[in-house]
Write a protein that binds this DNA or RNA. Structure first.
Lengths: 229, 229
DNA sequence: GGTCAAATGTGCAAAATCGTACAATTGGAG
DNA sequence: CTCCAATTGTACGATTTTGCACATTTGACC
């Protein structure tokens, strides 16, 4: 049987919503790949060679400052893709992007994507719309970082992460969460306990399970926005 | 004499760097406008009707959260424009944008800009490149908000503001700065005094003057990036 | 079933920031 | 010149977060 990848074969929301024609532009170049945890998808200041459309798992986009200051500015799951720089005319990555929860996706060369992007204005518009979504997410992050307490930001982050996974089990260590939120690791431990005591989550070594999504949203105090927006 | 607006007639860096042809697409629709302080250029959730290319002064883009939580996510000066949503396929504004330091600029209808943007791919690419720049600025803001002290963020902000004005005099009240940085107003007063005692700035009612740009950059502790990047 | 590195729990003093209140001052309007 | 509202200076307890340090637990591997 021929190796034809149907549009419906991917869980990636950008790909699966493309028109048949637009998908046809990309399809010959797509390659299914496994994406283990910590796999780097983009490296700061390095040329973007490959574009990843995620089907499962999620990646973090992290900005680095002086010293070891770093903080997450966005999450990418099956709703999105890496390589926005390519779409927007900058072929070098500004930030680090790496898998945070293992999964898989479709990969293609950045050059090929650029070609397809130039050929189809409808494809281009679709990709741009996602870029805009990501921009809004980053802005929300800036707001949360500046005006919210750790517990609120943690609640927001857990919700965003679970949106990008199938279940409510999030494979995360406190250490990782601390880096994502840009705080001390013990602060994360405290905040997680607080949420756990309130019955919103349960935790075990390297794992957080969301129990009460609704209350978590309240705890996030307006910093979390439903993904459809 | 005919009222022809030459490309060189505007200080806006996007417009002045356009090819003759691309500028020709926009020029018939541009209208010089005065932009007083607090003039709103975009309103959250409202349709974007007009696009502004700034020639002087600068605008703040502010994200709002629950209650009165708000924080600035970006500055726009003569290097930029408003209405990125239109370029990226979203005709409603996500954030508030208003003039922070009075100035002037060129205005045109969003519909006309969209038309021109669709006609010329070189114009489109130019606008997109600015959108990417703004995205990076927002990401830097998220980093600074999450990992920097008020004094560092203040130094960063003053530098960014002065990049977008001609002189080193910034017409700003503590109150406004507090909103921009997302902190308490007294905190700004303290931080300004600290910078003033160190000889980096001088202040008077409603005004901050930058005296030592270089030291300010050091104080910002890596959060400020030179505008050319 | 023992070992070890990773992950988590906990404590605590220092620093930063918040939240709020109120006094002092300044410059423009009348 | 006088008045007044906006702006700035200052204070202070409460809260949050930092920055360490160290004890404990867990689970994979041997």
């Amino acid at each position: 049987m021929p190796e034809v990848r149907a549009r419906g074969k991917t869980a990636n929301q950008i790909l699966s919503r493309l028109s048949r024609a637009d998908f046809g532009l990309l399809e010959p170049h797509l390659e299914a790949v496994d994406l283990p945890r910590r796999k780097q998808l983009e490296a700061r200041k390095k040329r973007i060679d490959q574009i990843y459309f995620l089907d499962a798992g999620f990646a973090s986009v992290v900005a680095n400052g002086s010293g070891k200051r770093q903080i997450e500015i966005g999450l990418i799951g099956r709703e999105g893709m890496t390589g926005l720089g390519v779409i927007m005319g900058n072929d070098r990555a500004t930030h680090e992007t790496f898998m945070q929860a293992a999964g898989n996706g479709q990969r293609m060369s950045a050059a090929r994507l650029r070609e397809a992007d130039e050929q189809s204005s409808t494809l281009h518009r679709t990709l741009l719309r996602y870029a805009h979504t990501f921009m809004v997410q980053t802005a929300q992050t800036a707001l949360a970082n500046g005006r919210s307490k750790i517990e609120e930001r943690l609640a927001r982050w857990l919700l965003m992460a679970s949106d990008r996974l199938d279940g409510d089990d999030l494979p995360l260590t406190h250490e990782f969460l601390a880096i994502m939120l840009g705080t001390q690791r013990p602060g994360v431990t405290i905040a997680l306990h607080s949420l756990e005591h309130a019955g919103l989550i349960s935790t075990s070594r390297g794992n957080v399970t969301i129990l009460d999504r609704k209350s978590l949203m309240e705890t996030s105090n307006g910093t979390y926005q439903a993904p459809e927006a």
